[in-house]
Design a protein around this nucleic acid. Structure first.
Length: 259
DNA sequence: ATGGTAGATAGTCTA
């Protein structure tokens, strides 16, 4: 089972790019972030025509997540638990039925800038709720993963210019600590389980020729429960996509599970 | 120091 996470930065603007990408790579499951569309406006048909079930959790204008799956899916839930008043569409879950059943959570973690401030408080509060959901996933003792745009640069190695991000909401010490707390519950960060060292990025800003200068950051991650980590065979970043026509500012991050 | 770009939307907000 191959699963990719991809912040597409708007499904209306990116539909053709994403459809071409799906035709080329044919992931079994695609977790999409920043669909920037309400559910009713998501262009389901061309995705269904490629053999994907389409489950969306959108809102007007911003945010929004989706799960596309070639495999059967069950028990879809929307919204991160823990705050009834949170109206931002940033979380969707489903159980994907392959050779093994895998609980798949797609997430778009708040950016949090400017920090400090109310947006940063919302980010840290959201991460606290994420930790609670993560603890519950671990207790199931089944293959499960949480993947998406975390808006977290975990370590200095994950940025081309770490000093430029030092005070940013994506890299502040409180952000990194909250991310570590979740990982250290017992999750495997798939990419770092497969590859160490600097120079691996999943996002390049549209501005100032960031991609041409390889001025990137690695903020899109797969966190696996121990039972899912046992099934991990590969993890890779499809950086090449950033250099094509009309790209998203993020690129897909893939994992392959023996499931 | 500022502005540089992109998307959704319809004046700005988010990133």
């Amino acid at each position: 089972m191959r699963i990719a996470t991809f912040n597409i930065n708007g499904v209306k603007a990116r539909a053709e790019v994403v459809l071409d990408w799906l035709r080329d790579g044919a992931p079994d499951v695609a977790l999409l972030q920043e669909i920037k569309s309400v559910d009713e406006a998501f262009p389901r048909e061309p995705f269904e025509d490629l053999g994907y079930r389409v489950e969306t959790h959108g809102q007007k204008g911003f945010n929004g997540v989706a799960i596309l799956s070639k495999l059967p899916i069950e028990d879809v839930t929307r919204g991160l638990p823990g705050d009834e008043d949170d109206e931002q569409a940033r979380w969707i879950e489903a159980t994907v039925i392959g050779a093994r059943a895998v609980r798949v959570c797609g997430l778009y973690l708040p950016n949090g800038n400017p920090a400090p401030g109310p947006k940063y408080d919302y980010k840290l509060g959201w991460m606290d709720r994420l930790k609670t959901r993560a603890e519950a996933l671990l207790k199931m003792e089944e293959p499960a993963l949480m993947a998406g745009d975390y808006n977290v640069i975990p370590q200095d190695d994950d940025a081309a210019r770490p000093d430029a991000w030092r005070d940013d909401a994506l890299a502040r010490p409180e952000t990194r600590a909250a991310f570590r707390e979740i990982v250290n519950l017992g999750f495997t960060e798939a990419f770092r389980a497969r590859k160490q060292g600097p120079g691996h990025y999943s996002f390049w800003d549209y501005q100032a020729g960031a991609y041409d200068r390889n001025d990137g950051i690695r903020i899109d991650h797969h966190l696996l429960t121990p039972q899912a980590a046992d099934l991990l065979t590969e993890c890779w970043i499809e950086a090449e996509l950033r250099g094509r026509e009309k790209p998203s500012d993020h690129v897909p991050v893939w994992i392959e599970l023996d499931a």
